[in-house]
Amino acid sequence: MGGYEETGVLSLDDLLNIPSEKQLEKGVAISECIQNIPCNPCVDACSVDAISMKDINSPPVVDYDRCTACGNCVAVCPGLALFIVKIKEDKAWITLPYEFLPIPEKNDTVDALDREGNIVGEGKIIRVRKQNSTWIITVEVDRSLAMIVRNIRCRR
């Protein structure tokens, strides 16, 4: 398999920086936007200046110590490339933008999908909200899937 430019799938090595365990326990935004594209609304969306960019064509860099995991950037990102990951004991909470029907409800059990759409486990919906006309879903999965699960599929 080739790199992401051939497959459309990132590997962890492609990410610019990976948060530490401690930062993950606090909960942080993870950017999967790694190319030089002309875009910067995530920078403007962050009220604590945790996202920086050299110029509008550079990829965003998240300052994990500053990030409060508020999710504002997740709701605004046109690339749907920002996720919040928070580790809670043996579970991981993943907050992702979701633009499909049906919209899951709290406590629903869903399929947890990886970056290629494969089912890699089961998820429980923790929170559902709408911001900037985008559904923002928080799903709980096994801790080992924290950096793997990036999508869900409703079973209803």
């Binding site: 430019e5 459309g8 990132l10 936007c33 790694i34 690339g79 749907l80 999908l113």
Partner: peptide, 23 residues
């Protein structure tokens, strides 16, 4: 082409739903 021409973030959105891209 041998590589995806559009932004990676657009390709990733599709791949997460299991749609394959054949370069």
């Amino acid at each position: 082409a041998p590589i995806i021409g559009g932004y990676h973030v657009h390709a990733a959105k599709l791949r997460r739903f299991g749609v394959p891209i054949y370069t």
